[in-house]
Nucleic acid binder design. Sequence first.
DNA 1: GGCTATATGGAGACTGTCTCCGCTTCGACT
DNA 2: AGTCGAAGCGGAGACAGTCTCCATATAGCC
Lengths: 199, 199
Amino acid sequence: MSQSSIASALRRDAQHNRAHILEVARQAFGNDSVDVSMDAIAKLAGVGAGTLYRHFPNKDALLAALLVLHYESLDDRRVEIEAGESDAGRALELWVEALGDWMLAYEGLPEPLRAACRVESPLTPTCHAVIATTERILKAAQDEGLARRTMTGRDIFFGALAIAWASGATAAGEDTRNVLRDVLKNGWMEPKTAPGGGV
Amino acid sequence: MSQSSIASALRRDAQHNRAHILEVARQAFGNDSVDVSMDAIAKLAGVGAGTLYRHFPNKDALLAALLVLHYESLDDRRVEIEAGESDAGRALELWVEALGDWMLAYEGLPEPLRAACRVESPLTPTCHAVIATTERILKAAQDEGLARRTMTGRDIFFGALAIAWASGATAAGEDTRNVLRDVLKNGWMEPKTAPGGGV
DNA sequence: GGCTATATGGAGACTGTCTCCGCTTCGACT
DNA sequence: AGTCGAAGCGGAGACAGTCTCCATATAGCC
């Protein structure tokens, strides 16, 4: 009874529909890509388009709701990394890896994420949260001299996003993905010896 | 008269229309982005949609025709670089810079370019040509020990493309673009002293 | 000037996002 | 249990984009 106010704000049938739509969308986006049409999702969920749009006013909102769920597991991973890894440099490395996987939870996801960083969208808050976390983990590494101060959390976020976009979910760019990840890593790592080319 | 066989294969009015459409499209894509609709371009050019599609069977084909023109100036730049720069490492650097500009000739261009690398499209040949050139310039740098052998021309192409995509044409990511470009550069440069993190 | 291959333009098929609104159903109150 | 208003539902259809089809118009060779 004393659930959250959100739960009680929705009639029980609506709650069920909402959850069902999310589950169906998760599978549809996961099996194919975010290109699956809203109408198709409505049909798969056995509801009318109106119902779908009542719960999620546009496609980004649906994606955002799905991503918030995913974000929770990303945050769990963050806690895990921060707890288990005392080396701030290694922690950053693990975090960026987790970040890459998160961004590719659904094929085609990088595009709306990028858009959300430019114009307000339902995905925007999640993006900002991820950037802030990246910033924090980066700073810890910087404070220990394990990462250059030339980069910001935002830079790393965009770097990871760009790599996710370029390599996509298809296997086509497996090698390229690994190489670019390595390039990004080298990019933030503090050179052990002489400074390379600065900004 | 003894122009190319292409010219004589088209009636004069068709030649004129084709050229006019190209010019209009160039301006439209340049002022706004590649999102300008085909219908809008047809209207701007004062022709029917049928005429537009007769000359360019789909949007990618139109983009490809435009890009081929741009590719010529990119190739001029390549010749210029190769002639004027004896340092193979510096040549690579200049080439990647030119590459970045070329990829952002029109806002939104990176997306179709990436798609063309995965599935056949009118843009595919141009992409392959650019990758091959990058490979060649990279190899020259590698042979002089100025670039790591861990990267391929394809990797650098995708790296540049990813950066172009992430920073877009809008000014929003000016800093990020520069930082990422630097990261990419550091990524291919042979470390002067001790080897950093390997693959 | 006549004729035919070539070219044209725009209606409309198709697909996708999203809105609107008449009808249904839940569930609180009696 | 029965009533009833608010919450929810579904799907027709508005709108925008890509691209096709074909009746009509035109260039340019005779």
